[in-house]
Write a protein that binds this DNA or RNA. Structure first.
Lengths: 285, 285
DNA sequence: CGTGATATTGACAGGTCTCAAGACAAGTGG
DNA sequence: CCACTTGTCTTGAGACCTGTCAATATCACG
């Protein structure tokens, strides 16, 4: 054995194995609905109705996502029914939406709720690569080929769809407009991956956390999901830790600092940016 | 000011501003040539000859890269001459190939030598996102739109080309085979970006460095640029530091450990993996 | 021989991790 | 209604990994 190398940090023992529902899951759903009140409530409970009609027209992120293009597609090209593995499925919080080995044929798209895409090592270390909101693909790369080793976990209760990659791919290759749109998503995704590497490699803990908050606020803002400086914020400190390469304990200390100094305020599952200027200074943004 | 936050680490003072040639640049070129002896030497000095003929046919990474497709393209689609901004250019080591604001119109491709693609902050902190070898694009995303804030720096003397994005893009959109090939590059790139985030966020220094060495060895192996367990290794410890999110001082200590324990051996600009099993244990690979 | 870049080494400091204990909220079963 | 569990958050003490600073050596180069 390599006993002269320094041992790695112990993996967090907060496993994913528990199937019990988390506290606050209902609150999360409620809050999420409050922000997406244009979604037809009928679609939420009767998940398996209407295979033919794409529910994406009710998706708040309609304009950003692939669903829009699928929606506009004349059914003559490919019958829509074959594009959709099943109608939207709903899973409770903390459930895995995609297992690391589950990428062979289908591409999931988040319809509603928050999810996290991450890599999990055998020893339990985990790195969250991105948070997914309504209309988000896990990665645009997943449209073209199976990506391995990625897990997708629901943070709030999540409604999602799975598309058959083969069909989606054919659709994209035959539609220059769609391809153009995908390539823009691709560039944006690449940009975000680069920034993540920069954050993890070269920034201190308060900087990383402040940037994560600002990034999420911006993302929510684009979807009209900010009310003033307040946003629905279902992330556990463990999620923040796994996204920023820190430990939950340290995240707690940094967030306490931020709140003690009146920069942000977190209560329940909502976060308010009280002093955006200061937050940007901390974030070096 | 935010005097209650912990200050960030001082940026490394090893700036890029110096224009003097580094020691060992010629050695690097020599060595590189030794590994790429199938490249016609005439192309190396007479860089501006033969605009019409694509020199990529001599590129050792021919099969991996976009150049192959461009090469096969019938000239009737787009005259090759218009695809190429200028014939291959050669820059000495430590020169910037692409400035952060220089991505408006052209896409660089490395023909020969080693380069590093990185993000550099105003305070000097730098994160290397990838090392580029012959045939490598900086990022496949750059084919579709300008990416901002990325710098590309020559590590050895580098020969490269710039393609006009508009033309390349048209080429790709009209050739399904090429698009398929690009999408495979994309997936691979995404995979590597994910692994980088995992490395930076969740691995210890020896793990990161060992993985970097193994990754480079694998990359060189695919190009037939390994001789046994020995490879040309022009990276300065500063490059390793900037790629792994560490400081040059700490990289030196970890590498010293690795060499003291007979895992690897570095002399001059070449690196030998003496004990691959042990290196993989350290790398957790 | 002075200069600049690089690499090595040691002492020290500091950011983050580990471990532990406790508080709190929510759900469960008695 | 009350124990009990589970998950989350907070706080403190101490350890450790890595960064900072400094001195020195080497090498290439002009």
């Amino acid at each position: 054995m390599a006993d002269w190398i320094t041992p790695g940090p112990k993996a967090s023992k907060d496993g994913l194995e528990s199937e019990s529902e988390q506290a606050g899951a209902d609150l999360a759903a409620e809050h999420s609905d409050a922000h997406n009140d244009e979604a037809a409530p009928a679609l939420l409970d009767g998940a398996d109705s209407e295979i033919g009609a794409c529910a994406c027209s009710a998706c708040p992120a309609h304009a950003f996502s692939l669903c829009a293009a699928v929606d506009k597609m004349p059914a003559t090209v490919t019958p829509l029914a074959t594009l959709i593995e099943s109608s939207a499925q709903t899973v409770p919080a903390r459930r895995l939406i995609c297992h690391p080995k589950d990428w062979s044929e289908f591409v999931p798209i988040i319809c509603q709720g928050w999810a996290a895409s991450s890599i999990i090592l055998a020893d339990g270390r985990r790195q969250i690569l991105s948070f997914l909101l309504s209309g988000d693909l896990v990665s645009s790369a997943s449209l073209f080929g199976s990506i391995s080793g990625r897990s997708v976990e629901a943070i709030t209760p999540v409604r999602y769809r799975k598309f058959r990659r083969k069909d989606i791919k054919a659709l994209i290759f035959n539609d220059p407009d769609l391809l153009e749109k995908i390539s823009r998503i691709w560039i944006e995704e690449r940009e975000q991956a680069d920034q993540l590497a920069l954050d993890l490699g070269r920034r201190m803990a308060p900087e990383r956390i402040a940037r994560l908050i600002l990034y999420i606020a911006e993302k929510l803002g684009k979807r009209g999901m900010m009310t003033g400086n307040t946003m629905f914020f279902p992330l556990r400190q463990r999620h923040i830790a796994d996204a920023t390469g820190l430990t939950p304990v340290h995240v707690s200390k940094v967030l306490s600092d931020l709140q003690r100094n009146g920069v942000v305020q977190i209560s329940g599952r909502s976060l308010t940016i009280n002093n955006e200027t200061e937050l940007r200074i901390v974030a070096n943004w």
